[in-house]
Design a protein around this nucleic acid. Structure first.
Lengths: 338, 338
DNA sequence: CCCGTTTCGTGCACCGTTCTACGTAAATCA
DNA sequence: TGATTTACGTAGAACGGTGCACGAAACGGG
């Protein structure tokens, strides 16, 4: 079976033969290791250039490092991923590391498979973004490969690092901004997932929401709506929420991912924003910034999160054993929706 | 240097020792190769299960296949990628293949590096989505690994397959719909890239636009605006275009990626859509479907494209040598913007 | 009962790297 | 000048699998 394409590959041996040196010498040049004369280096580099030699990552991974990092993303269409990804890249590119991406589809099962896949591919380290995987499972894999987690709160974790924006603080920011503008009837809209960990961002934001409401002595006005995570009923539930007689005066939505459809649905129903209903989201997605959307949203500075994550991973790969848990401050971007 | 995590890995030898058989026997079981008794298989499978053994993709890749496909995406924030990706996954998952993603950032240089990266990682095949790489370069890599290209027209390519929606037809669809509604002063807005291949989708759509205008004897009304590909001047150019005294009456924009910001800018400037200006995009992104955006757009059925691409790749991996070039029909989704 | 086939399991030579250990020649020091 | 270093380059054993070639045992037909 299977070939479909072939052309004998240029290996380290081909180069060694061409340059008239040993395989080990070529290897040394590649890794710019100690004990290589300029003459040898030049000879080998010339052959490499001439033959277009590239070392096999697979083979290399069997002994040394692969200079490749794995990045596991929840999905491909989440608005806050591009920023984080870019932040990661800015660091890894400078360090000469390559990135391989896995797309987890927000299913823990898939994510686990991908992590194993990346370990099996001998990546040097892993960054998990908004992973659904439980803390215990993470500890398990963290024993096999350096791991840094973004968008998943596990402040007591020993084996891996976590980098997050302070979701609770972000939520408090939102509630306080709404209170400042005179809103009292503020509800929180969140996703309800079957396997909902407290570690996920949505529950964290809920905590912040409750804290801020309590601080304003509005605990009794606290209301939380949970949207089903998958399927069509999601939109229907939004419509229900928006057309209910006791519709809240202001909604803080866990993510732009839901805040934007919610806003759209409000628009369709002729509900005026913010005159009839104020809405605030989270993640400050590009769509929120569009002038006809103008959704206020919390910005968690994805590029910075990504950068910190990559740096943490590198320091961990270089031997740091004690876990690091970083929390950065989010900021609220106010637009027409409040 | 570097370890940060370790725990001696379960290898094929560990399993062999545990099951009391040879390494080769375990390998045979893994590959369900010929010549394995049920007794042996059971013994080995029990050990695999017990030890939680997973074969190393890297090691395996040095001789056999890795059962991993590489998918190269232009970027991470392009609205038409999720659909394609999902289509690919639907096929590969069923076939028991894993997917590893590379993100090309729309730079040919980066993309080339990623392709090599994937070849070096011994992926069994590659799907390139909206790649910027030239046909000649693709032929080169296609000799090393089976390749299928999506969103890049190269109908004469010999070494690899192309799967596309008919961009010319999609553009004609748009122009005809606008003509039907009485618009005559129809302009095309495209991105202008330094290395602009005719193979890319934007020039293809331009061809379709010109064809349809010519067919309506409106060649003299044909106008094409080119937005710079990178940097801030992009938005400024949009503003310029929208505030020009001879602003077109209708705009067909090469992609929602630009059509949506354009629409947003029009909104900000108080230009009424469609009363003062009609806009149509391409890719039918989720944002276009929002009720306050309501952008008409061409749908190219990403999931179908992805599915076809994956199927083509499999058939190529199974030995097909003659290239396949598939073109599917796009459809126009009409919304409030025309 | 003998001999040619199958069937099953094993030994071993790869695959393309890395890296330790070692030999040799040149450079440095006393 | 002889004894040490130091610098350079090379063998060769890993790494974790695959898959060919081979031998032994079981099978089956005449």
């Amino acid at each position: 079976m299977a070939d479909g394409a072939n052309e004998t590959r240029v290996t380290i041996r081909t180069v060694a033969a061409d340059a008239g040196v040993s395989v080990a010498a070529v290897s040394k040049v590649m890794r710019n290791a100690y004990g290589v004369s300029d003459a040898l280096r030049l000879k080998v580099e010339a052959s490499i250039e001439k033959l277009g030699y590239r070392p096999s990552v697979a083979a290399r991974g069997m002994r040394g490092r692969t200079f490749t990092l794995g990045v596991l993303l929840v999905g491909i269409d989440n608005p806050f991923l591009p920023g984080i990804f870019q932040g990661i890249e800015s660091v890894t590119e400078a360090a000469g590391y390559k990135i391989m991406v896995g797309v987890g589809a927000a299913r823990a099962r898939t994510e686990v498979t991908l992590i194993e896949q990346m370990i099996d591919n001998r990546m040097d380290g892993l960054i998990l973004v908004a992973s659904q995987i439980s803390g215990a499972t993470l500890e398990h894999y963290a024993r096999q490969i350096p791991i840094v987690v973004v968008g998943h709160h596990e402040p007591a974790a020993q084996g891996y690092d976590t980098i997050n924006n302070d979701d609770q603080a972000g939520a408090r920011l939102v509630v306080r901004a709404l209170l400042d503008r005179g809103y009292r009837d503020i509800a929180y809209v969140t996703q309800s997932d079957q396997d909902d960990h407290l570690a996920d961002v949505a529950p964290q934001r809920e905590i912040g929401y409750r804290q801020a409401m309590a601080a304003a002595s509005l605990s009794d006005r606290t209301r939380v709506f949970r949207l089903p995570a998958h399927g069509l009923p999601r939109t229907e539930n939004m419509t229900l929420l928006l057309t209910a007689p006791d519709r809240p005066r202001a909604i803080f939505c866990w993510s732009d991912l839901d805040a934007i459809p919610l806003l759209s649905e409000a628009f369709r129903l002729g509900i005026k924003v913010p005159e009839d209903l104020a809405i605030v989201g989270y993640d400050n997605s590009p769509t929120a910034a569009l002038s006809m959307v103008a959704l206020s949203s919390v910005d968690q500075d994805g590029p910075r999160l990504g950068k910190l994550a990559a740096e943490a991973l590198f320091s961990r790969m270089n031997g740091r054993k004690v876990a690091e848990h970083i929390l950065i401050d989010p900021s609220l971007i106010v637009r027409g929706s409040v």
